[in-house]
Nucleic acid binder design. Sequence first.
RNA 1: GGUCCCGUAGCUCAGCCGGAUAGAGCAGCCGCCUUCUAAGCGGCAGGUCGCAGGUUCGAAUCCUGCCGGGAUCGCCA
Length: 578
Amino acid sequence: MRIVAALEALKSEGKLPADLTLVGIEAAPPRGPNHGDVASNAAMVLAKSARMKPRDIAEALTDKLRSDPEIARVEVAGPGFLNITFVPAFWQQAVARIRTAGVDYGRTDLGRGERVNVEYVSANPTGPMHVGHCRGAVVGDTLANLLAFVGYDVTREYYINDAGGQVDMLARSAYLRYREALGEDIGVIPDGFYPGDYLKPVGTALAEKYGPSLLGKPEVDWLGQVRIFALDMMMSLIRDDLAQLGIAHDVFFSERSLMAGNRDIVAETIATLRDEGHVYQGRLEPPKGEVNPDWEDREQTLFRSTAFGDDADRALLKSDGTYTYFAPDIAYHKTKWERGFKHIIDVVGADHAGYKKRLQAAVAAVSGGKGKIDVIFCQLVKLFKDGQPFKMSKRAGTFITVRDVVDEVGRDPVRFMMLYRKNDSPLDFDLAKVIEQSKENPVFYVQMAHARAKSVFRNVAEVFPDLTETSRGVIDADLTLLTDAGELDMVKKLAFFPELIEGAARAHEPHRIAFYLYEVASSFHGHWARGNETPQLRYIQADNKAITAARLALVAVHAQVLATGLAILGVGAPQELR
RNA sequence: GGUCCCGUAGCUCAGCCGGAUAGAGCAGCCGCCUUCUAAGCGGCAGGUCGCAGGUUCGAAUCCUGCCGGGAUCGCCA
């Protein structure tokens, strides 16, 4: 900001070309501590278009910036970096600025109230959630929190895949359990059926509701009712699992609803796209590489996704005439656009990797090119048990549920762990490690920084009972007493929070917050330990109320930023850990 | 074979819309608890940022091509 102002001043003074456009200028915290508080590349970026030497621009800028009373030092370094050091007062006052902003510190109006739809989880409604679903759930939920924090109008949505063949198998499996509940020996669960015990209560409930009335009837007579019944129970199971993670969606959108009742929105969507030339009858090239023995060359109904950058056109109808998974998905995304969402975000698993382009194509086609969709991939969670890779299978009934894990380790470690990784990277999730060595989990490190801060306020009550967190004594503290380098380092970290939030929101990368909070916690723990060795550095100075008050103000904003950040992650900020 | 993701310290990973001497945790070594929570802190050691080109004043970061690992490729969702 100041740099831009200085550049503008130089332009008007004729020391820089007046038509110079100021793009690509950055001011960021430098790597090393010897390069000031912020470093700017302005001189180097502008050198070419201004046809001047970087160092000359830098020198001119330096003269301008030196007149700023909040800037202590400006140095030109290396090829033309500007290293700017602020006066301590600048950072001291930052504490006041952070405190004044309060719970809104870091909040921006980036989203300008625009509506964004974040779809996440969308696990098949054929059983409870397992740990593999956790990641997308937590990443999606946190991204939704983050976008809401920066001013978007966020809708959290779950797409229920209740129209495919797998829900018929669910119904058949539930029917088996129903017969079992009525006393029949069902023997071994046949191949292809869902064998998990979680279907037993469904069978029991069916038996209670219908008695023996469904027995001995052909499938067509019971499949529909049993499917609805089982789906209902599965979805409530999943909602409970999500609640365990602290997740609540605003909308549960049923795939089946797209083609139920007297309207078939999928057919309507296809017809519209056909009118617009995006759907045609044609043939596909067989996939290259491994030969699929079942490949059969036939004319089919295709979506021209290649027109929007996809690698191949995509089939909309199976050979039996029913829709592929993709067909209702186009209609579904059309409803997102028609429901007024300017931004659409899908959080999906890595197994959908090839799906991005066709979704982008679909959204482009149904929105006339105006809709924006971002597809976020969460790489696989590799599960380890006792150091050994652990293979889960819903069909085989060997899987570890979200409930198991949350019951064992708690919501906070699970959520934090899922976020303490870039979503593009695979994630090793070792149950033994998370459970037994939970102290290695960074979540405790961050939570402890918060708890410790709170403990300072508990302890100060014995010396200065009137210096509570919200007291005038703390709020009006003389911040110029914050002079220690460790204290100012803490402030500098905290001052970066708004930029961090905005960057994470723009990039749709919630993990950045987790890493940032770790750094904030680190600056706090470091200063804390220095207090162990040097008592004068401790927050509470029994013989100096003014210094204590100033330091408490710093502790308060530290706790406040941690709490705000943790809240976005959906992780608790405990008062004490013990 | 196509597409997408990944390759950074012994291990697990940050950093990636170009910026200065590449960071953290764990493991290893040396220190710090009569003292605000040691679930913590400081220090040492550890790197040809997969390889090779290219763009640039400047490349871990952008482009191309290889190599390695993972995911996926009509009639599953």
